[in-house]
Design a protein around this nucleic acid. Structure first.
Length: 453
RNA sequence: GUGGAUGUAGCUCAGCAGGUUAGAGCGUCAGAUUGUGGAUCUGAAGGUCGCCGGUUCAAGUCCGGUCUUCCACCCCA
């Protein structure tokens, strides 16, 4: 029995119409990346599991796709306990995994190739990543990330540049966004002042839900995690701060006086905003104390971008990581970068109808096919048209005009050249404008002139 | 990973309390004096009712399982 063809949960095929949109996004993004001097790299789809594990937090480890060892993978596993714990067993029989993001493989790449790189190293990387998450709208198991990172520089000018890149990309894509910025040092300072440093990660994931779940739920979650009422109240007084970016920063700096890290973080954010303000940015940049982000490796600035007019999670996110390459044997190299989620950006742009109409057009001119002799003449004109840089094609079969024109119509081909018996005799073509419906009989030279002007 | 929904023609959905040939709209294809699309009219094709199993004389309709998609949680692009 033949089963219906299918693909794994959370993966997708892309039709030509979808690829047009996706490539438009990739092109816009790469153009911006190279405009700022970033160069591309690629890394393998799979990494050694040891490279991936322990970088994304407990939750992240669970979401890694593991790859079963080849050959007789059970032969080396001691019998007994391993066969009662599938999680434990999985690490025994899987040495490789699919990458979960592009940042960790990048850190590995930098540590591995440090001698061939020039620092500060600016790279971009556009490749798919995989997460064994349960799929939902805007959440896939295979999706593309477009990463830009600078590594080997502590300067906050890198952060400013990333802010500009974010602004340029989304302006170019015609999607208006809220760009939220915070700094992990501020959060560390807060947790420190509260005296709950041991619960840093737990507190992070709780307060990250401020916007989505609301104040009450965050308080409840913190209580569930064993924080005292005083601690909770103190935390809430920090993350509940309101006002303009400047006002929030000012009050925060005074509240954080006792924490060196906290003040440092606030000053970094202040520096960032002071500089961003001077730039001509199209999107909204706001300082959000409740922005935490789940990934373990962030240590400084963190970014998160949401589309203003669409219901979907974040479409871009990132931050600074001071110790990631250290895990691969290269200490004291700080990096910062952001990742654009191409698939979600695509979904947003579909929702907002933000794709330019011309995307649908692949061929500008189609020659109709009236018969062998006429088509042969069309072929000679076609050659010249293409040499002039106009994408054009000949309808391959001699079928009814109705069918040929309807084909052109459906493919959004804007011009059709009708070459029939009379045109062949006169060595002319009838150029039809498919939008207005008007047509005129002109020479091949004139045709090219019209289409290239 | 936890909890909850969904699944009927290419698409969006109907299908009355289980009962004979499963419907509509849109789309597709073919025609409306043989060189003209997007409008109209006529007609046609197209469905293992997600899949497997069970209950029943009888299941798209009930039950169980499974897969998919979606929603919440978790987390994130």
């Amino acid at each position: 029995m033949l089963n219906k063809p299918s693909i794994p949960k959370g993966t997708r095929d892309f039709l030509p119409a979808e690829m047009a949109g996706r490539n438009y996004i990739f092109q816009t993004i790469t153009n911006v990346f190279s405009l700022y001097g970033y160069t591309p790299i690629e890394t393998p789809a799979m990494e050694n599991l040891s490279t991936l594990l322990g970088k994304y937090g407990e939750e992240g480890d669970k979401l890694l796709f593991k790859i079963l060892n080849s050959g007789d993978f059970l032969s080396k596993v001691p019998s007994g306990e391993y066969f009662r714990d599938s999680n434990k067993l999985s690490f025994k029989i899987c040495e490789k995994g699919l990458r979960y993001d592009l940042t960790v493989p990048f850190a590995r790449f930098v540590a591995q190739h440090k001698n061939s790189l020039t620092f500060p190293f600016k790279r971009y990387q556009i490749q798919p990543v995989w997460r064994a998450d349960r799929p939902q709208k805007g959440r896939y198991r295979e999706f593309f990330q477009c990463d830009v990172d600078v590594i080997g520089s502590n300067s906050l000018f890198n952060e400013i540049e990333l802010g500009q890149i974010i602004d340029d990309v989304f302006t170019g894509l015609n999607v208006s966004c809220d760009v939220k910025i915070n700094n992990r040092k501020i959060l560390a300072g807060i947790v420190d002042l509260v005296g709950e440093s041991g619960k840093f990660n737990q507190i992070m994931t709780a307060i990250d839900k401020m916007e989505k779940a609301g104040r009450e739920n965050v308080i409840m979650e913190l209580r569930d995690k064993g924080l005292s009422s005083e601690s909770i109240e103190k935390i809430m007084s920090f993350i509940g701060i309101t006002g303009s970016n400047k006002q929030k920063l000012n009050s925060l700096i005074s509240m954080l006086q006792e924490s060196e890290a906290g003040v440092k973080g606030a000053e970094e954010v202040e520096f960032l905003f002071n500089n961003l303000e001077k730039l001509d940015l199209q999107n909204d940049f706001t300082f959000d104390v409740a922005l935490a982000r789940g990934l373990d490796y962030y240590t400084g600035t963190i970014f998160e971008v949401k589309a203003k007019d669409a219901e979907i999670g974040s479409i871009c996110g990132g931050g600074r990581y001071d110790n990631l390459t250290e895990m691969f044997g290269l200490p004291d190299v700080s990096g910062v970068g952001v990742s654009f989620g191409a698939d979600r950006i695509y979904d947003v742009m579909i929702q907002l109808n933000a794709f330019p109409r011309e995307l649908l057009t692949t061929t500008k001119l189609m020659f109709t096919n009236f018969g062998e002799k006429e088509a042969a003449f069309s072929l000679s004109v076609l050659e010249k048209v293409r040499k002039a840089g106009v994408s054009a094609e000949l309808y391959p079969e001699t079928v009814k005009m109705k069918k040929q024109l309807s084909y052109a119509h459906r493919r959004h081909i804007p011009f059709v050249a009708l070459v029939g018996e009379t045109e062949l005799k006169e060595q002319l073509v009838t150029l039809k404008n498919m939008e207005t419906g008007t047509q005129e009989k002109i020479s091949p030279a004139k045709l090219i002139e019209k289409l290239t002007s």
